[in-house]
């Protein structure tokens, strides 16, 4: 279109204002000296000091990070396997059920996932005596189950888009299946594995509902702690905590974006070089 889409640009501006004004307002009010969280009372950083002296917050943050690291790593391994199975093994027994099991958790409301996991853990404890108590293990298992399906979806869509002929060529040239996997398939999907891990990590770090149902006494993750505080209303120290989290996550996403963008560009350049060398 030759005309400048003024209407569309206006809507974009309003849309981004809508996205970012609440977050910016929260950041500004984290520096509010007043105890009343919504009335401005001068600049202060005292809520950050309060926050860092709060042992409960620190230990909840550490627990959340531990669960997120462990569950994201397991979910990435399981999800990558599932993604490869979906994209590359066309026929195996129970494939329909398998792809259903990959899709279903994505559309299942979190409340239902939460109560069904809790009932499963309670009944398993009764039937086979494991898990004996709920806490770190049960939360991690629930997070793995939930986020591995995201990883599987990302990995399989990447593999479906990739050219299968390369793998077949390697096989024809005498590579063993394991070598094909190691030298060709895994490098192709490594960006997808990385973004899958990041997604699994943030899903686990962010989850309230499923954690709330599957955790036990004494195992409060950071979102659960925030949840229990936020239910009572807006407080300035949560503003400070939110600001820290938003800054860390924002920085992480921007850095990851730049790194992946560069890797993509380098790969494209390599491919072009390879084509030119063959001409």
């Amino acid at each position: 279109m030759n005309r400048r889409p003024i209407f569309l640009i206006t809507v974009l501006c309003f849309g981004f204002a809508f996205f970012y004004i609440p977050i910016l307002s929260m950041i500004v009010y984290s520096f509010n000296a007043s105890r009343l969280a919504t009335v401005w009372g001068g600049f202060s950083t005292k809520w950050y000091a309060t926050l860092f002296s709060n042992k409960q917050v620190i230990s909840a943050a550490i627990l959340s990070l531990q669960i997120a690291l462990l569950s994201a790593t397991c979910a990435t391994i399981l999800g990558t396997m599932a993604g490869i199975a979906l994209a590359r093994f066309k026929k195996f027994r129970g494939r329909v059920l398998f792809s259903g099991l990959i899709t279903a958790p994505l559309i299942m409301p979190e409340v239902i996932t939460g109560i069904s996991s809790l009932m499963l853990f309670i009944l398993m404890a009764q039937w086979i005596g494991w898990p004996a108590s709920r806490g770190f293990t049960t939360v991690t298992i629930a997070h793995i189950t939930f986020s591995m399906t995201f990883v599987a979806t990302i990995v399989s869509s990447r593999l479906i888009a990739a050219d299968q002929a390369i793998e077949e060529a390697a096989m024809d040239l005498g590579s063993k299946p394991w070598q094909v996997m190691k030298d060709i398939t895994l490098p192709i999907i490594s960006p997808a594995i990385l973004s899958g891990w990041l997604l699994a990590f943030t899903i686990s770090l962010d989850d309230v509902v499923i954690t709330n149902f599957t955790t036990g006494p004494g195992n409060t993750t950071l979102p659960l702690l925030i949840w229990s505080k936020v239910k009572l209303g807006v407080t300035p120290d949560i503003n400070a905590l939110a600001t820290i989290i938003v800054c860390i996550v924002g920085l992480g996403v921007i850095i990851a974006g730049i790194v992946m963008n560069r890797a993509e560009k380098r790969r494209d350049a390599d491919i072009r070089l390879a084509y030119r060398a063959n001409e």
Binding site: I23, Y29, V230, N239, G250
Partner: peptide, 13 residues
């Protein structure tokens, strides 16, 4: 990517 809970919280403010 930022916390879902905190985005709801921002609107509470």
């Amino acid at each position: 990517w930022t916390s879902f809970l905190l985005r709801v919280y921002a609107w509470m403010g």
